[in-house]
């Protein structure tokens, strides 16, 4: 009957990873650090080294480190970081949540698209800082306008990518679901949403980045705490070192949160068959 498992076919299965020589792995591990270390060295040389820029415009790494230490010791740094992280977390969950609901609806229903999408696209083009005065006017100066602004930032990438992912679901898979007797709901649950997952995760990653951006915009005005507050406090008090502490922390936290999402993405999308870039 059947002579063993066949190996030839339409597409060959993926090859397993090769073992690389030791120095190649070392280079691979160090590669992401090249640019940051280079920038740090350049920064040091430009300030403490050759005094290319005045200290009040670009403080040296040492000055920034000292300020960071002071803020940490006083407990303020923790308070600022906690405030910002809280706002991003809440706003992102809120915005992404609403986006998933609306995006699923618009993705599935052409009628919903015709009703909702044009308005949403118009709103999408309003830049973050333009929202701030309105939100302050309508919602006061506490946490609500800040979290709302972050949610607005998170909403659009998630919404747009989800709708796109749903619409791009392979028609053949939907037909398959129909042949196997799936109801509309069953099709959505078992075929459309899983197929849209890669797009959704892309949207979430971009949305998270936007959340941080919109957070800073919100904290620049009417705040008492937060990393954006550090920026404007440094600006108001002629403390460039405080501004830099704020910027660096934003970079670190932004990268860390993106990294976490990336990890999730890798786990959830292990089944995708993309080309993955050249080695």
């Amino acid at each position: 009957m059947l002579v063993g498992a066949d190996t030839a076919g339409v597409s060959a299965p993926r090859p397993t990873a090769l073992r690389l020589p030791v120095w190649r792995t070392a280079v691979r591990r160090l590669a992401p650090w090249l640019l940051p270390v280079g920038l740090l060295a350049g920064w040091f040389l430009a300030t403490d080294g050759f005094h290319l820029l005045p200290a009040h415009q670009l403080p040296s790494p040492r000055a920034v480190a000292r300020t960071a230490r002071d803020l940490l010791a006083g407990g303020e740094l923790f308070r600022h970081v906690a405030a910002s992280v809280q706002r991003v977390a809440l706003g992102f969950l809120l915005g992404a949540g609403v986006a998933i609901v609306l995006g699923t609806w618009v993705g599935l229903s052409r009628f919903a698209e015709r009703v909702l999408d044009p308005t949403l696209q118009a709103i999408r083009n309003v830049p973050s800082l333009a929202w701030v005065p309105f939100l302050l006017l309508w919602m006061g100066i506490d946490e609500l306008p800040k979290v709302t602004l972050v949610a607005i930032g998170a909403f659009f990438p998630v919404y747009v990518n989800l709708v796109s992912g749903i619409r791009q679901t392979d028609r053949k898979l939907v037909e398959l679901g129909q042949v196997f007797g799936l109801s509309e709901l069953g099709l959505v649950r078992h075929i459309v949403l899983p197929a849209a997952l890669p797009s959704l995760l892309t949207g979430l990653r971009i949305g998270l980045g936007q959340s941080w951006l919109f957070l800073v915009a919100a904290e620049l005005i009417a705040s008492t705490r937060g990393l954006g507050f550090l920026l404007i406090d440094g600006q108001n008090s002629a403390r460039a070192d405080i501004m830099l502490v704020g910027i660096l922390l934003l970079a670190v936290l932004g990268k860390a949160s993106d990294g976490a999402l990336r990890l999730l993405e890798r786990r959830l999308l292990a089944w995708t068959d993309g080309f993955g870039g050249v080695a």
Binding site: G140, I141, A222
Partner: peptide, 20 residues
């Protein structure tokens, strides 16, 4: 106290709106 950072004219608005 809780000092809310607002530029002068915004501070007045906040006072009149009861935000501070």
């Amino acid at each position: 106290v809780e000092i809310v950072n607002l530029q002068h004219s915004d501070g007045r608005l906040a006072l009149e709106r009861g935000n501070v």
